[in-house]
Amino acid sequence: MDKQVAGVASAKLEGLYEGLLNELLQYVDFQKLLYLRRICWRWHTVITSELVSYLPYVVFAMDLDSHRDDDDNQLWKLVDDIVVLVELPHTLLMFGCNKTIPPHQRLIETFWNYYDSKLDIYGRNSCPIQKVIYANTTVNSEAFCCDLVCQAGFQTVLYHCTLAFSS
């Protein structure tokens, strides 16, 4: 038996009230979070109901054609320096290069398109972004099925988000 498993037989995570369990789950990477819905009905309910998307900014961008004009190329130059992206309802913050993209959906979409194309060129293991954090929004889980999220390798964190599942 796994040593950690053996050592915690008496640990009762079921005893955590919903708010605390939800806080704990906020630290779990998004893909793992979806996986954890299989633990039991309680976890399924907490994860499904407590975690939602302004992901349209990001997700739908992947379905759009890129438009690489000069402004967009300037934006693309930022990518190499970015370690963490934080998506807030009105802003995309790029930590590492101290840049903020204003609430201009096309730019954000373009950014992600370029990021995807860069990975195509240099390989998925070249992913410079280590973490993407979504905060105060609704996240559509199916949006994460795209190749970019699955293959790029960055960690996705949801904070005060609600997770939406299509039926």
């Binding site: 498993v5 915690v8 806080e23 704990l24 906020q26 630290y27 779990v28 990477d29 633990i39 039991c40």
Partner: peptide, 24 residues
Amino acid sequence: CKTVANILKTKTVEQIREMYGIEN
């Protein structure tokens, strides 16, 4: 929370149930 979450990340559903006494 972060410490426990880090542990959860490395475990399977079955292991987590066993670790924390959660009934399927």
